[in-house]
Design a protein around this nucleic acid. Structure first.
Lengths: 336, 336
DNA sequence: AAAAGCTAATTAATCGTTTTATCATATTAT
DNA sequence: ATAATATGATAAAACGATTAATTAGCTTTT
């Protein structure tokens, strides 16, 4: 902390008050104005001395920190870093900095939250959808929030997400076009929450069959998928709620002696690196993670400038790979 | 920004001065002391009101921001988030917050750096080893730095890394014990930088053969590995500098009609999720990523408390999986 | 010529903490 | 009995910026 250059140092060298320096450096054109000559002298002196404003002081005075808090549940889960990268990239040429808050439990969440409050972050981006918000646990007294990857239905909060219904439709179409009619769904959600999927299939005249819940862990996915495949030999396709579960299905198929894609087509969600690593390569629905982050940051900044909160819905995209193919029963049918 | 709870609010409710509240809440035992009864009343009142200290004010007064900058090259590369998670977790019950700085080019790096300076971060953790530091591009006037995953050989900077030599030794031993003598090495580094690997092999009486550089991209890895396998049919093993490259070798082996592990053993580095997804499962050298982050944050905090910079060297660990097996030429030899 | 308005600035208050210097009062030592 | 020390506190001065209130000197308007 050798010797920071202060406003006072600049003002002394220029022979004016620090108020004037502050006004000039912040480009104020209101009550406090400097002559053109003084303006130039001040700016030159500031550059000369290498003046860097102290944001603690500024933040204290203005009660604005130009800091955005990014609250993430489990930083090492695959999609969080990509969203974070989007947020960072959107903040690049702005005044805002991103304060990171990773948490792995309700307790940690609360600690992060109060840390954010104490630092006076101007707003918060929540990656994922902390349950606590639904429960109204988090004190949210006028704190501007944007939820990326979910919404809380709060008028005060913005939301960015990829429409689950449209993902379901993409998947249903992909399978239907290839003649599949017996399609399992391996999901993180509870079966009762899967009406989007049921409806999407009905659009193509298909009645949804096996829907099974499963946590997003590889081993659990393998176990559940193996059970499904054994119980339902008629299945020719499986839709999984993540690439991790998709690769789990691939592994389960191997266990059951089913060839992919000859006997079984598999589709994941995320289009992550896993798709290219797996054998065969996994078809997947790409979700614009990075874009979600960018849009989230942008929305929050707009809200900080006084615009009202709103929701932004994005859409996925099918990335076809070897694991997705024509249904074995009817190779002639439904080809597009 | 409705109404923050201030020190004053707590002191008014307790009927004492804010100085006393501050001292109690910070656990000071020096000049300013409170009676046990007062202590309890203050703490209770603070909890009651939900007091959160304003870090801008604190930072201003103490001329410390209690902010740590985390500079990361490419946030979405697999290991960065894990290190970041380690840093975050170490900062959890401290006063420090983590300011994120992702960059994808020299230019972005410089912008992040000046952003950090402007925010008055107390210190910086660099994840990975920005070339700019070697080149002395970054102005580092007394800024405390810790490098995670590399060092710059600067006395002023701390460093945490996993010893490459020991990783090489682990790999060499794993292969040697299984009877392999013709082992390729697919690395991010230039062949001239691989003496650790050569020496490790020599320990076991093996002369290093094919060493080939390759960027850490799947497709490039497949191409390079395919070339190696075709040019050197005598190879029975391949060591890859990352799991991504390891899985690339698996794919290349398939292209070349080599079975893993019957014809070829493969070993990666990182013990990431890729190892369990791949077919066969990939053996790997685990690097304590999270621990590197935690130790890095801890070291920086110590340096901020006045301790001198130092280096911390961690070690890897072999995680054996299906891709690593006995050499086909000599199943009887060298079994341990 | 007085009033009003503009320009170019200054002074001083303020933001919410931490910390130094100070002050009673009570206890112990001389 | 007086001085020294310990205990339990308070008042006020930082910290470095922003900004409302004020001022002094000009120019223009009435």
């Amino acid at each position: 902390m050798s010797k920071m250059v202060l406003l006072k140092d600049v003002s002394e060298r220029t022979g004016c008050s620090s108020a004037l320096v502050s006004a000039v450096l912040n480009g104020h054109t209101g009550r406090i104005r400097a002559s053109e000559a003084m303006r130039e002298r001040i700016i030159e002196a500031a550059n000369d001395l290498g003046y860097v404003p102290n944001r603690n002081a500024r933040g204290l005075r203005m009660s604005r920190s130009f800091l955005i808090g990014a609250l993430a549940a489990n930083l090492s889960s695959s999609f969080v870093p990509e969203i974070l990268a989007g947020i960072e990239s959107r903040c690049l040429h702005t005044n805002y900095g991103v304060l990171l808050g990773d948490y792995n439990s309700e307790e940690e969440l609360l600690e992060r939250w109060s840390g954010f409050q104490g630092r006076g972050v101007d707003g918060v981006i929540c990656i994922g959808n902390p349950v606590s918000f639904k429960k109204n646990i988090l004190p949210c007294p006028g704190m501007k929030c944007v939820f990326v990857g979910g919404c809380v239905g709060d008028k005060e909060c913005g939301g960015i997400w990829v429409d689950r219904a449209s993902l379901s439709q993409l998947a249903a179409r992909a399978f239907a076009e290839r003649g599949h009619r017996h399609i399992a769904y391996l999901t993180n959600h509870s079966p009762t929450e899967c009406n989007a999927w049921r409806n999407a299939l009905l659009t193509h005249g298909i009645v949804a069959g096996t829907i099974r819940s499963c946590h997003n862990f590889f081993e659990e996915g393998v176990a559940v998928a193996t059970a499904i495949l054994q119980e339902h030999p008629e299945l020719t396709a499986c839709f999984a709620d993540s690439d991790l579960l998709g690769t789990a299905v691939l592994t389960a198929a191997r266990h059951c002696g089913k060839r992919v894609p000859e006997d079984l087509s598999v589709l994941g969600i995320d289009d992550s690196i896993l798709c290219r690593i797996s054998q065969p390569e996994l078809a997947s629905l790409r979700q614009p993670r990075r874009e979600q982050g960018e849009k989230g940051a942008e929305l929050l900044m707009q809200m900080l400038d006084g615009e009202p909160a709103r929701d932004i819905v994005l859409h996925g995209e099918l990335v076809c790979r070897a694991s997705l193919a024509q249904c074995p029963d009817n190779h002639s049918e439904s080809r597009k």
